[in-house]
Amino acid sequence: MQFINQLRWPFWFFVFIKNILGNDRVYIKNLIPPFFVSLFGAIFSAFLVKVLPSIIYGDSEGLERSKLVTGYKEKIYLFFDGPISYSVSNYDITTNLHYAIFSGFLISIGALVLFKSKGGLYKLGLSVILLVGSFSCNLVIEESFTSFRSIVGIEMIVVCLMFIALVSMTNFIKRHQKITFLSMALVLSSLSQYNIIRGFIIPQNGELHAITGELSAKIDREYNGKVMFDISDPAYNVFSNVQRSDEFGGISSAAPWVIKGMAEQIKKVKGYNFTIPDNYIVSENNHCDEDCIVIKPGDAMRKINIAY
């Protein structure tokens, strides 16, 4: 299911490349096959989130992705406040109004260049349809959460419009155009690498080391009792003050299905003998009783951060 979702989001971008950037004019017949491919994908996704859970578990009411949207005005507002805002600002990693204005200016220039091309009105209209269409499945469901991976299609189309603008604006300096774009590519790749390190590698690596240190401090390698986890007080901002969605700058151990895999990996690498019960999250109805040790990932991360 996750694979289908990740394939669906950039799907319409490739339709954009083929039919808008790859042809002099828009041919409706070329849009029919991708439409039915996307329709089949949406129907199959609906089966996976609505019908299959009902067959296996009896109902799917606990999944917001299985419910159709009811608050249309709120959904439209969230679409512009989330996906469109993130995409115009190129994922809005560090919110910057000046960059958003600059980006919006380039997008407008790119749209104008597209409009002035052969069949420009149809191309521009189709671009808007494809941009919204790449997020259409998210627009019709109750879930209002915006993740980075769900706006891949929108972001790619936006970047293409920006690139069209940059090409048209630098045509007058053809002698230096290659150097200009090579310099831009180096700067952008460096910024991307910096964001990956800052927003993903550092938080995840720090989190794993913190939990490893906590396990090492509380548990001997010969201990074969139970280990349970209290995730009631997560340290969301311990490694990064900038967070976007549940991905950039965030931690993983706040999710109950993640911490067990981390602990199992630490156990395997360091040679521990503890066991993790099936119900390993401490709660009011699930206590860590005799021959059991509680690990608090949030406290473990705060201990290694000088800000706490």
Results as ranks from 00 to 15, higher is better:
G104I: 03
G104M: 06
G104K: 00
G104D: 02
G104Y: 02
G104A: 05
F105C: 09
F105G: 12
F105T: 05
F105H: 11
L106K: 03
L106H: 05
I107V: 14
S108W: 14
S108R: 11
S108Q: 06
I109G: 05
G110Y: 00
G110S: 12
G110M: 06
G110Q: 07
A111R: 14
A111S: 15
L112Y: 13
L112H: 10
V113Q: 13
V113G: 07
V113L: 13
L114R: 10
L114W: 09
L114C: 07
L114I: 08
F115L: 15
F115K: 12
F115T: 02
K116W: 02
S117Q: 04
S117R: 01
S117L: 03
G119Y: 07
L121A: 10
L121M: 13
L121V: 15
L121Y: 14
Y122K: 10
Y122I: 11
L124F: 11
L124K: 08
G125A: 01
G125M: 01
L126M: 14
S127G: 09
V128M: 14
V128E: 00
I129W: 07
I129C: 08
L130D: 15
L130A: 06
L130H: 12
L131V: 11
L131K: 07
V132Q: 12
V132I: 11
V132W: 04
V132N: 09
V132M: 05
G133W: 04
G133L: 05
G133F: 14
S134H: 02
S134I: 12
F135Q: 13
F135S: 13
C137L: 13
C137N: 12
C137H: 15
N138L: 08
N138F: 11
L139K: 00
L139P: 03
L139M: 02
L139I: 09
V140D: 01
V140P: 07
V140E: 07
V140Q: 06
I141M: 11
I141E: 10
I141A: 03
E142R: 06
E142Y: 01
E143Q: 12
E143R: 10
E143W: 14
S144P: 11
S144L: 15
S144V: 14
S144E: 14
F145C: 05
F145S: 13
F145I: 13
T146H: 00
T146A: 02
T146P: 01
S147Y: 01
S147M: 07
F148N: 06
F148S: 06
F148V: 10
R149S: 04
R149E: 06
R149P: 00
R149C: 02
S150V: 13
S150L: 11
I151R: 05
I151P: 01
I151E: 09
V152A: 09
V152T: 13
V152C: 04
G153V: 07
G153R: 01
G153H: 02
G153T: 07
G153L: 07
I154V: 08
I154E: 00
E155Y: 08
M156K: 01
M156F: 15
I157M: 11
I157V: 12
C160V: 12
C160I: 04
